[in-house]
Amino acid sequence: MTRLALTRRHLLSATGAVLATGIAGLRAPAHAQGLAPTPTMRGGSNNYRPGAPLVDRIGGGGFLTTGTVRRAGDGMPLAGQRIQVWAHTTEGHERDERSHGATLTDANGVFRMDMPQIVPAFGQPHGHLAYDSGEFQTVFLRPVMASAGETSLTVDFVLVPA
């Protein structure tokens, strides 16, 4: 499993968020200890197709993209949230309609998308995920796999009410 929780970017943004909330916390203690929201990544929305259909799996499956969706601040798991996934896989390019699909989080805020194996494209083996249903602020992510041999990808969302 590729845990993406501790990349340098996350560490830096988390450190920044801790500093920011720490300073703001002097005035607003209620928000000081909160779970920081996930920032949109550069390039995250590339080849995005709005309104990808809810699917049991994308294509023939075999590769698992999974993760959690939680609320910023208190970290409460968010059920029934729609997450869209797309990537360059063994079955199609990123821009192809058949490479896109959406799934909903379960009662524990966990989503799982069975999809074809992600293969390196544009220099890195990477996936794309989106939350853009409107209830919370839109987030686009572009996680990079640790290696092209990985058969799963774990990506967590922390959302802020819109």
């Binding site: 990544m41 550069r42 390039g43 929305s45 590339n46 080849n47 390019h93 990123e94 821009r95 494209a121 544009f122 220099g123 890195q124 572009r142």
Partner: peptide
């Protein structure tokens, strides 16, 4: 050719906004 394959990735690269340093 890369532009035809994935226009947004190449636009990001040419405008120096790409998330990938190699671009």
């Amino acid at each position: 050719g890369l532009w035809l394959t994935s226009p947004p990735d190449v636009i990001d690269a040419l405008t120096l906004r790409s998330p990938t340093p190699f671009s």
